[in-house]
Structures are given as structure tokens and as C-alpha cells.
């Protein structure tokens, strides 16, 4: 029984990618054991509107003052691989501030924290799969302990989707970043089409004049085989 086709998993990076040094001691050495999709995998947690408070999706208004940096909107749809919208699904995001610094205690990058910016947010997709965040464009930052390795600007995103099998943690990048070819994490995705899935695009139509640029970022999750459950329409 395979509800979710496994071919689409080829888009993912390998576990071992030596250029990304941290994979060397953490990638499993044996191949994954392929198992059938049972109810445990087809089911999944339901996180929706109840888990988001007003303001969670606007990262520029979580403190008394306005954060420094370039205000942007990030807007897009969550879809499955059959181009069907994924409604009512939770997206959690986290990112560095405009200077390239995370509030995380382990981040020792010599760049200032911003008392008006935490960099964490949540949103839920609407009935058509749309979501929207307001935030600050994150800065790029160096990877500690490595010689001159810099991460391109990115926003981390975590999604559940409708089942255990649709769970995804990924990163959204910005178009035309000159650091792409030097970033082992971005380059770990072997297929170029898949790699470009992680790059947002400038959306002038949704950009709000004299307020903020909008970046469009659609997220495509694994989808159930269409023929398994789609009934003919009777309307």
C-alpha cells in the first residue's frame, strides 16, 4: 500500500554531503529500510488556527519598537505535488535579524542583537493554501569554525501538512543571492529544479507601495496518489 508516491523523495538532499561538514558524523551509514505506509504514517497531528495567536505572523510587531532592517512580506501557497492546496496547516518560521544574528544563546556571531526582533513566527494556511508573514529581511551570516563559509540569507520553515509523511523542515532563500554556489547546505540538493524550489521570487503585484516588498514562496509537499481517493464530480 503506497498512498504517497515515493518517487518525489528524490528531491531531498543525501544524508552524507561531506562539503557540509556537520553531516560527516551525523549521517547514518546504512541505507534506510523501506517500509509500507501504515495508518501510523498516513495519520498526522492537526495543528491549525487554534495554535496561532493574533500577531504571530507579523514578526515586526512582537516588541515595543520597530525592528531595524528592511521590512518585507513573505507570501505564498502550500500545495501538494498534484497542485492541490493544503489548507489549515501550520507553518513555523525562524530567522536571523537584519544583521545576521539569531537570538539563540549558541549564536556567537559578532553582529548586534535587535531588542525589537526575535525572529520567530507562526501562520496557518487558509482554505486555498495561502499564508502570509510580515518580517525583516534576514542578513547573511558566517558559519562558526569554518574558514569564510557564509550562509546566504534564508528563513527557516517547518510544516506538518496532512500526515506524518508530509512533515517538512526547509529553508527559503532570496532570488539572485551570490552566495548560493558557496553554500553547501543549499548546494546539497542535487536536482537544480528542486534547488530552485527553495528560492523565493520578488512579487511586485503583492508589494505594497511605500511600505514593503513582497516575496512569493510556494511550498510543495508530498501528495497522496490522486486516483486513490478522488471521486468523480457530480455537480
Amino acid at each position: 500500500m503506497t498512498d504517497y508516491p515515493t518517487e518525489s523523495l528524490a528531491a531531498h538532499p543525501p544524508y552524507l554531503f561531506p562539503d557540509y561538514v556537520a553531516t560527516r558524523l551525523r549521517a547514518p551509514s546504512r541505507p534506510l529500510v523501506i517500509i509500507p505506509q501504515t495508518l501510523t504514517e498516513i495519520a498526522g497531528p492537526v495543528f491549525g488556527q487554534a495554535h496561532v495567536r493574533p500577531g504571530d505572523s507579523d514578526l515586526t510587531r512582537q516588541h515595543a519598537g520597530t525592528p531595524l532592517g528592511e521590512r518585507i512580506m513573505v507570501r505564498g501557497r502550500v500545495l501538494d505535488e498534484n497542485s492541490r492546496p493544503v489548507p489549515d496547516t501550520l507553518i513555523e518560521i525562524w530567522q536571523a535579524n537584519a544583521a545576521g544574528r539569531y537570538v539563540h544563546v549558541v549564536d556567537r556571531h559578532d553582529a548586534p542583537l535587535d531588542p525589537n526582533f526575535t525572529g520567530a513566527g507562526r501562520a496557518v494556511t487558509d482554505s486555498d493554501g495561502w499564508y502570509e508573514f510580515v518580517t525583516i529581511r534576514p542578513g547573511c551570516y558566517p558559519v562558526p569554525g569554518l574558514n569564510n563559509v557564509w550562509r546566504p540569507a534564508h528563513i527557516h520553515m517547518s510544516l506538518f501538512g496532512p500526515s506524518f509523511l508530509t512533515r517538512l523542515v526547509t529553508q527559503m532563500y532570496f532570488p539572485g543571492d551570490p552566495l548560493f554556489p558557496y553554500d553547501p547546505i543549499f548546494m546539497s540538493v542535487p536536482d537544480e529544479r528542486a534547488r530552485m524550489r527553495m528560492v523565493s521570487s520578488l512579487d511586485m503585484a503583492m508589494t505594497r507601495s511605500e511600505w514593503a516588498l513582497c516575496y512569493r514562496f510556494d511550498i510543495v509537499l508530498r501528495g497522496r496518489e490522486a486516483s486513490l481517493f478522488e471521486e468523480p464530480h457530480h455537480d
Binding site: P13, S83, H156, S158, V169, R197, V220
Partner: peptide, 12 residues
């Protein structure tokens, strides 16, 4: 089918 969005590390 559309290519899915690839996974990336959760990072530190």
C-alpha cells in the same frame, strides 16, 4: 507531478 520542496537542516 510537481517536484516537492526539498528538505534542509533545522540548523543549530
Amino acid at each position: 507531478a510537481e517536484v516537492i520542496t526539498p528538505s534542509q537542516t533545522v540548523g543549530p
